[in-house]
Amino acid sequence: MISQRFSIGPVGEEIAMIQWGERGKPPALLVHGTGFVADVWDEVARELASTYTVYALDRRGHGASHKPGTYHFLDFAEDVYRVIDALGLRDVYGIGHSAGATDLLLATKLLPGRFTRLFVMEPTIMDPRAVRSEGLSEESLLQVQGALRRRAEFDSPDAVFERYRTSPTFADWTETSLWAYVRHGFVPLDDGRVRLCCTPEIEAAMLRPIYEAMTQVYVGDARGNPFTALAEIDCPVRVTTTAKSWPVYKEMAARAVALIPHVSTLVFEGAGHCVAQEVPAAVVEAVREFAR
């Protein structure tokens, strides 16, 4: 199946997109997590394209999308709004992973009535009813700053693949998914080397609000705390977790279940946090089952 690449928005504010399948089918919108790109959905998207017109975007700061320097939760949700509005999508099946799942959940307030259902895998969630005031702990700050030590440049795509193949984050990814990330998550340099599109500095800027949400200290910006809107979601939502992921993801999923009105749950056994890249067939089956 041939996928199509395009972008929406003016120069300097582009959101890079991929479409799988022909137009005219019900739309499904896939949103990746922090550090990745739209292409990591390829195995899932190709299967879903028999039923849906499948779209995925590079979130701001990632891939070929704009990198404006502002990475609050509502910034990403507003980008989802821009995509759906520009494409004129209705009755959207939103499918998201990690912080990308959060983008979809928060976008429902900006786009009331436009989603038919949401399938969210380990979203980043805080409970706005239990905000703590002490700010990020030293341990969390070290985790955020750790992103700055991430290696940004490699000699070649092959060198990236060999390095990442043994990394705990990517060890269980399918070969297809990992190559999709390597090919599209890096930009070629003039000397033949490649560099991360989502640089260590960008990733660290994104991780700060994520860790603030994880630890219940996120207060938002001038627009307020966006997580209060979760109680107003009016479409069915399935919140999923995985057996092998960190406990904090299960904790945040429990917060989501407590906040969202029309919610159900699912656990992927034998998989880790990046479930769609580890067991794409299981994700496709679960997505289809929820639609039924």
Rank of each mutant, 00 (worst) to 15 (best):
M1C: 08
M1G: 14
S3H: 12
S3R: 10
R5E: 15
F6E: 06
F6V: 07
G12I: 12
W20E: 05
G21W: 06
A28I: 10
A28N: 08
T34F: 00
T34S: 07
T34L: 08
G35D: 02
F36Y: 07
Y55K: 06
Y55E: 01
A56C: 06
A56W: 01
L57S: 08
L57M: 12
D58T: 07
R59Y: 00
R60D: 06
G63Q: 03
F73M: 13
D75Y: 04
Y81P: 08
V83Y: 08
A86Y: 06
A86I: 10
R90E: 14
G94Q: 13
I95E: 13
L105Q: 05
K109E: 12
F115C: 07
P123Y: 03
I125M: 00
D127N: 10
R129M: 08
V131E: 06
R132V: 09
R132A: 11
R132D: 07
S133E: 15
E134I: 06
L136E: 10
S137R: 01
S137W: 02
E139C: 01
S140F: 03
L142D: 08
R149H: 11
R150F: 07
A152E: 13
A152L: 01
E153W: 00
F161P: 01
R163C: 10
P168L: 10
T169D: 12
F170W: 05
A171H: 09
E175W: 01
L178I: 12
W179M: 12
R183K: 04
V187I: 10
P188R: 01
L189E: 14
G192R: 01
G192N: 11
V194G: 02
R195D: 10
L196W: 02
L196K: 09
T199S: 04
E201T: 15
E203T: 06
E203C: 08
A205L: 15
M206L: 04
R208N: 01
P209E: 03
I210C: 00
Y211D: 04
T215P: 00
Q216Y: 12
Q216L: 06
Y218E: 06
G220F: 12
G224A: 04
A229H: 08
D234R: 05
C235H: 07
V237H: 11
V237E: 09
V239C: 03
T241D: 03
A243S: 15
S245T: 12
P247T: 11
Y249V: 13
K250A: 11
K250F: 05
E251W: 13
A254V: 13
R255M: 14
A256I: 12
H262K: 14
S264I: 08
F268M: 04
H273S: 15
V275R: 04
Q277I: 03
E278T: 07
A282W: 05
V283W: 05
A286F: 08
V287S: 03
V287R: 03
R288P: 07
E289D: 14
R292T: 15
